[in-house]
């Protein structure tokens, strides 16, 4: 009984993370609009973050915080290392998105379009 629930949760979490990554890569490869490409990049980011956190999860675990009164709960905590890595990655992801969007604005000012198939001259 418990095993079935486990399978369902496994498939839904990993499946949604992998689906987010695939949707993001699809947008990056297929879409012609630059903002759509940046949206795809941020979706890949989101999927990777979910994948990282899901790898660190432990069934019936608690958050890695020693709350008052529960100072000896270390045997039951989820893995804190992926959480710390994802914390870093989210902030860096915002920096990457902001720089990409500023490049989009700059390209629009120079070429008057944000579709990559219409930007013919590659001169800046």
């Amino acid at each position: 009984m418990d095993f079935d629930f486990q399978n369902i949760v496994t498939i839904s979490v990993y499946g949604s993370a992998i689906a987010l990554i695939l949707i993001g890569i699809y947008a990056v490869l297929i879409k012609k609009h630059l903002i759509k490409i940046v949206i795809g990049m941020s979706l890949v980011d989101a999927g990777l973050h979910l994948l990282f956190v899901a790898i660190g999860y432990i069934n019936n675990g608690t958050a890695p915080i020693f709350s008052p009164g529960y100072e000896d709960a270390a045997t039951n905590m989820v893995d804190p290392v992926p959480q710390a890595l994802v914390l870093t990655a989210i902030v860096i992801g915002f920096a990457v998105t902001a720089v990409a969007l500023s490049l989009v604005i700059r390209l629009y000012k120079h070429h008057g379009t944000v579709r990559i198939d219409e930007i013919k001259s590659l001169k800046w």
């Binding site: 989101a46 979910l50 956190v53 994802v86 914390l87 989210i90």
Partner: peptide
């Protein structure tokens, strides 16, 4: 995603995703 992070016992990540994402 931030709700899912909260359910996966990662409140720090959930807060970051909520504020930045």
């Amino acid at each position: 995603l931030s709700i899912v992070f909260l359910m996966l016992q990662a409140p720090d990540v959930a807060l970051t995703e909520a504020a930045i994402g």
